[in-house]
Computed example of a mutant assay.
Amino acid sequence: MNRMSNSTFKNTGFHHIALKVRDFDKSVGLYQDTLGLNMALSWGEGKERACMLDMGDGTYIEIFDGGQSNGALQQEPMIHFAFLTDECDAMYNAALKAGCSSHMAPEDLTINGHEKDVPIRIAFVIGYDGELIEFFQYR
């Protein structure tokens, strides 16, 4: 797929997704230490803590403390979010090693689009608070 500019508004793009988590330090560790995101900004104290972690391209995952999730898969209204990567299998395995559970092992697929076919490799894990994380690789 090719990048396209917004036809209505200039300089738009995806900025962040926000998660409210039960164990702030453990979740920050998953995204920062295991998946390689960099701390861009942090603020607050105790259950009022929050931070933004850079995914590597100027988009962020914002994490807030004080979540109540039981860790079960949460899919509505958000279905999942995806990391674009050249290392689908490695990210999947690192997440499993860090304690995430598998939702779908790495698999080669082709999106049969109307415009063109797009060969991909994808995998999914369930994060600590039930967030569904996809690792998306173009082949």
Rank of each mutant, 00 (worst) to 15 (best):
Y92I: 07
E131N: 06
R49C: 04
D25H: 14
T59H: 03
D23R: 07
L53P: 00
F24G: 01
A95H: 03
Y60H: 13
P77Y: 01
R139Q: 14
G46I: 06
S69M: 05
L53I: 04
A94K: 11
G36S: 13
Q74G: 12
Q75M: 15
A123P: 03
A18L: 07
F9A: 04
M104N: 12
E134M: 11
I79W: 05
G29K: 04
D86Q: 14
G58N: 07
R3E: 15
H103L: 13
C100Y: 00
F81Q: 08
W43Q: 11
L37F: 13
V118F: 07
A98E: 02
T59D: 08
L35K: 03
Y138K: 06
A98N: 11
G46R: 12
Y92P: 14
D54K: 10
V28F: 00
S27W: 00
V21T: 09
S27R: 02
M39F: 00
L35M: 11
S69T: 06
F124W: 15
P77E: 01
K20C: 08
N70F: 04
I120E: 02
M39Y: 03
C100E: 11
L84A: 14
G29Q: 09
F81K: 09
G99W: 13
G58T: 09
N70C: 09
D33A: 10
M91C: 13
K116R: 15
N11F: 11
A50Y: 05
F64I: 06
A98C: 10
N38V: 08
N2S: 15
F136R: 02
Y92V: 02
S101C: 11
A72H: 09
T34I: 10
S7M: 06
K116H: 11
R22A: 13
E76P: 01
E48K: 15
Y128I: 03
Y60I: 04
T12I: 06
A123S: 13
L30W: 05
I122M: 11
Y92A: 02
Q68A: 07
F14S: 05
P106V: 10
S69V: 03
A72I: 01
L132R: 08
R121A: 02
P77M: 00
S7K: 08
D23W: 15
M39A: 04
I61H: 00
M78Y: 14
D117H: 00
S5H: 08
T85G: 10
I120S: 03
E131W: 09
C51A: 09
